[in-house]
Structures are given as C-alpha cells and as structure tokens.
Design a binder for these strands. Sequence first.
DNA 1: TAGTGGTCTAGACCACCTT
DNA 2: AGGTGGTCTAGACCACTAC
Lengths: 234, 234
Amino acid sequence: MAARQDRRSWRDVLEEIRNRVLTGRYGPGDKLPRDEDIAAELGCARSTVQRAMRDLADRGVVERRRKGGTRVRPDPVTRAVFDIPVARNEVESRGGSYGYQLIRAAIEETPPPVAAALDMRAPLPMLHVEALHLMNSRPFLYEDRWVLTRTVPEIETVDLGVVSANEWLLANKPYSRCDLRFSAETAGDRVAAIMGLEGGEALFVIERTTWSGDDPITTVKAVYAPGYHLRAEI
Amino acid sequence: MAARQDRRSWRDVLEEIRNRVLTGRYGPGDKLPRDEDIAAELGCARSTVQRAMRDLADRGVVERRRKGGTRVRPDPVTRAVFDIPVARNEVESRGGSYGYQLIRAAIEETPPPVAAALDMRAPLPMLHVEALHLMNSRPFLYEDRWVLTRTVPEIETVDLGVVSANEWLLANKPYSRCDLRFSAETAGDRVAAIMGLEGGEALFVIERTTWSGDDPITTVKAVYAPGYHLRAEI
DNA sequence: TAGTGGTCTAGACCACCTT
DNA sequence: AGGTGGTCTAGACCACTAC
C-alpha cells in the first residue's frame, strides 16, 4: 500500500492554497473562505490554517483583515529578503582580510539633504564621518555617515580610528526604525579618489537611515566597489 | 495606579528577549534558556514563547535548532524585505501611464552565461526576448530575457508584442525557486541606444532567474532608467 | 538516545473593522 | 453589531540532532 498522510500539516495547507491561487481557482482580488471553513474542508484545526495563512500573507500572496476576510493580493510582487551584513563580516565570509581606515570625523551642522532623510526640522550639530572598509587592503566600501550627537552623545568619546561608527552604533545604540534605499550611482571625483577609481564607474549604493523611537540616530551612504552585487534566494 | 498588563503577549516576549540581546545580557553566540524555562520565567505558555522566538529567528536575531537550543546569532545583519513589483504596477502606482514595446523575440541557442545562470549543462533552443517598459512614454525599464522553451513550450504561441513575457510567465508558469541579484552597471552602447541615454550612466540592475522544480524557466536582466531606487522599511 | 524545538489540537476570548 | 482574523492556553506527540 502506498504511503499515506494521516494529518495535514500547515505546509500542506499552504501548498494547497497556493496552488489554488496559481491555478486561478482563487483569482487576484478574490475573497477566500473563512479559516474555519477551510479547516473543515481540509480536515485540520483552524490554527493550522492560521499558520499557513500567516505565511502566505507574509509572502505577499494574500491579504488578511479582521472581519474583512482573506483576499488574494491583486498585484503580484516578488518578495525578497536580503541580509545586509556588516562590512567586516562580509569581507571575512568571503575569505578576505578586513581592514578599516578613518578618513575624517568632524562636527558639522546638518546639511539640508541629511535633515530631510532624518525627518529633522532644524539643523543641529552632527558628527560627520567618512571611512573606508578594505578587503585584502583594497577598497571595498566607502562610508559617508552623519550621526546626530544629541541622540548618541557617547559617540563623541569613541576613537573612530579604531572602531568603525557602524560597528559601534550596532553594539551601543539599537534602532527601532530603519529606512533602506538601494540605487546605482556614478563614481564622482571625490569617491573615485578615495576608492582608487578612474571616475565614471557604476557603483552600487545602499543608503540607510535609522531612528530610536522618534529620535534620529544616523544616516549613511555606503558605496561599494565596482562589481559588487547583493544576492537573495526565494 | 499605573496601567498594568495582565497577560503577556508574544510581542511582549519578543521585546523582552530582544532587549536582553541588545543590552548584552544574551551576547552574540550565547545559548538562551529553553522555551519552557523562558515561558515559566515570563509567565506564559510555551507556544507564546515559540511565536516570539520564531519571529526573532525570521528576523535573523537568533538561530534555533532542535536539541541544539536557541542561540543569539553571532554576526549581526540588517535583514530587509523588498517587494519587487511588476513594471506595470510600479509605473501605475507612481501615477504614471504604462507602456510596453517588444524590441525583439527570436529562438537562439543558450549562450554560456545564460546556461550557467540556469544551471544548464548543455545548450538548448531558447526564446530570447528584449523589451522596453515605459512610464509616460519614456523608457523606464529595459528587459533582456531568455526563456527555456522546453520548460514552457506554450510561450511560443504567445504574442509578446501585446503581453510582456514577464506578465505572461507570472500568470502561466509559477516558479518554485528564484535567484535574485542586485547590482550597478554602466550603460553600454546598445542599452543606451535603446533607452535613449548618452552612455556611461550608472544603472540599477536586477537579475532574476527562476525554476519550476529542477526545470529552468527563465533568466532576465532588468535594467532600470537612471535615478531608479528601491526602498524598504524595517 | 535523550533533549530541544516544531507542530497540531480544541477551545476560549479578544480586537478590529466591514456592514 | 456581528463576523472574521489574531492570540493565548494546556497538553500531546513528533522530528531532528547534539551528545
């Protein structure tokens, strides 16, 4: 006799529902039956359906609302999860040796674009840090950072020639909100000079802005050396 | 008298554990108590701790293994979720009018780089499609795609001048695996000519490769017009 | 092989939000 | 105001894997 599955796992439920979406039995925007009815139909507990549905909602396949029910998301998206590692770990996980150079650290008034990124109304004194992260003694990542000293006064006592602002902040000032932006940028003269490029190369850029509650912490532009790419698998 | 919380929710548990990680009470690599002990300590059911811990594991804060227990992830990462929309939806959600142009569609043998991306051993006949997606009649996204017709023979009967290969595939050939790669690339002569650029601009590129089980479906390079960026919030 | 996390259940109550 | 998803519980059993 063939193997038989006695109980339905939440993965089974997930697969079943996903197939119904993919085959069009539940079309974009359609309302699905209540969890309880699906549970009865598939022969499992409601919480098992819940588990599957939550996963489908997390993946962007369906939308769920109390009283409103569960609907197939009308606009299909590819939802990808990326891990953005700390430069040191990224370099070392590739088998390279990590190096770090502080280029500059100084107190300056918030420039308007930085104020905009951090939702700041008025300019304040900020720590402006430029640094270079190296892989095998070659430029890997250039970091241009602004830190609001009012939120993180302790950072003024840190020797940023030894510890990178990124690692110090991660260890000492947890954030509650983070905005991320990926883009491509042409290497300008200054960045080219710092990274040892000719200028004009296409560079991968990650901008990250963080807050602790409503208090702005820092905004940083991370410019990666040519050829860098970020991967994900779904 | 101050407000008091009678029951602990899984979010409370999550916050509590996260704080312990952030304040160093549980340091990187440390082993946490068993779920059952944490449940007893915090006064809730084990399944509530489970719920919180699964979330922390999903966010990359801790790692969990049966019998091995729960440990704080030794390497901190910023884990970001991105939704990569279909070009049409992206254009329309920005309030633009969407347009589509097929540039070329032809059967060709798999070139070596495409074979490598798709894990193919030997070259096979493939459909090579080039297309342009427009926002307000201006180039928004250039798409260079290879489709394995052995996996998706029906696509040869589709009029790709009317429906984009992307939309057709999403609706008709679900994938089970997807590789994604983000990078920056300099506009070459051909892309510049197609997108109406001068050449040399830095362009944001998403490469996506999909499989159905072990069968390769398609690999596509999506080249966005200058100034494009992808956002996420955590 | 024993300890830990993973899953399932049945039931209860709650919170949100559409109707 | 009522229906739907969200959460919590207590208990049971399972699956993986470190020891």
